[in-house]
Design a protein around this nucleic acid. Structure first.
Lengths: 221, 221
DNA sequence: ATTATTAAAGTGAGTGCTCACTCACTTACT
DNA sequence: AGTAAGTGAGTGAGCACTCACTTTAATAAT
């Protein structure tokens, strides 16, 4: 079923259950320890596979890492497209995305952490290999929707849709971090209040107001 | 002059020039390689100091890292307070902060990278030691200004100033990353256009419109 | 002035541990 | 009988940290 490019044929021939097991254990390790300090021997152990087997599946550590990124990317794409398919209007999509970020906490946490880890300069080496793919999934989507909305005079005219897409995605990314990474969780509580994470609806509402304001405001001078 | 808490007295007794040398080399190493893979022997070499001396200055690698964070924090605080002291009104401060982020590129790059690196889960261990300090510098500042502005009816009433402070700072942080980290640089270009980094004024203008919209918009229903 | 004394600062080869990766081998499948 | 898949002790490189030692500098004794 799932086919990856950065691994050996042996790995691709494994059944999905085993592939998932190995990759989820790896993602957990990489996101928690970073690329360099994640330990392949330990990963193999936790995944119930021998070290030797791991090196039959992946040429080296780097290849394992890339395969994890591939998987995360597939995960993201499917999440995004399911949202877009369901919701017709732009504001609906934005709200839905925020909702997905909030709800997908547990399930997506490791993916988000990995994504965050990857963007660190330390891993710049492969970051670029995947960056355009990840952002490609979302950037054009937002910008296209905003341009469309601007043409139909649904949102203010005095802004560049590309910048707005950028700013909105910035907010999404930080929200994702704030729901996934310990540091940013604490930071969000510091800015707002201790029980924010019990108040998903409120966060969504406030975020929507912020974004709507940014989109609809028109300066009279 | 500069006094640190996470190091030995021997280090504090060094002249500022040498302290700066050691810390800037260390910050560079930590931000580029992450905590685990930064090499103390190499750092010592690059700073023109023996390994033994390093361990006279810092009890261990962790202590060196914490001292780097302390220094970054001092840097941030002084930057922020110089902005706040100069500018009287809230919008002025926001614009000034964006300007500082853009201008301080070269000088602050290593600090930003370190900050980013630190927030990674891998370093959660010490992140928390410093998080509240870092955010404490900014969070209360913004929230207080916004509350004030709200009382004076200068901005919309239907939002929680704490959330708005949070969202605005989220935008700042992403902007900082976008000006410092390779990955986020590329991402910004992908969203906007290739020469964005030659167009500081334009970025500032667009960001201000976005934020102003968010702050001033009022919904009529 | 010169020399002795002592403490503080600095040195870098060495130690022991961690970990990516290998390879001679076993097991399972056809 | 032959091939594909899997095993895990072993290897060597990298690196945090140590320690027996040297250098520097400041003060005291002659």
């Amino acid at each position: 079923m799932m086919e990856f490019k950065s691994c050996s044929g042996v790995f691709n021939r494994l059944d999905d259950e085993k592939k998932k097991m190995i990759l989820s254990v790896s993602i957990k390790a990489f996101s928690e320890n970073g690329f360099k300090s994640a330990n392949i021997n330990t990963i193999a152990d936790n995944a119930g596979v021998s070290v030797g087997a791991m090196y039959k599946y992946f040429e080296n550590k780097r290849a394992l890492y890339l395969t994890c990124l591939e998987w995360s990317l597939m995960h993201l794409s499917s999440k995004i497209s399911s949202v877009v398919d369901e919701e017709p209007d732009f504001l609906g999509i934005i709200e839905k995305i925020i909702r997905v970020i909030q709800e997908a906490k547990a399930e997506s946490e490791p993916f988000n952490k990995l994504y965050y880890e990857m963007a660190t300069e330390s891993n710049a080496e492969f970051a670029m290999l995947i960056a355009s793919q990840i952002e490609g999934v979302t950037s054009n989507l937002y910008a296209a929707y905003l341009e469309e909305a601007q043409k139909n005079n649904l949102i203010r005219q005095d802004i560049d849709p590309r910048f707005f897409a950028f700013f909105i995605d910035n907010l999404f990314i930080m929200l994702q971090f704030s729901y996934s990474c310990e540091y940013y969780k604490d930071r969000m509580q510091l800015y707002t209040y201790d029980d924010v994470f019990l108040d998903d609806a409120r966060v969504r509402e406030q975020a929507m107001r912020f974004i709507k304001g940014a989109l609809f405001y028109s300066e009279e001078e």
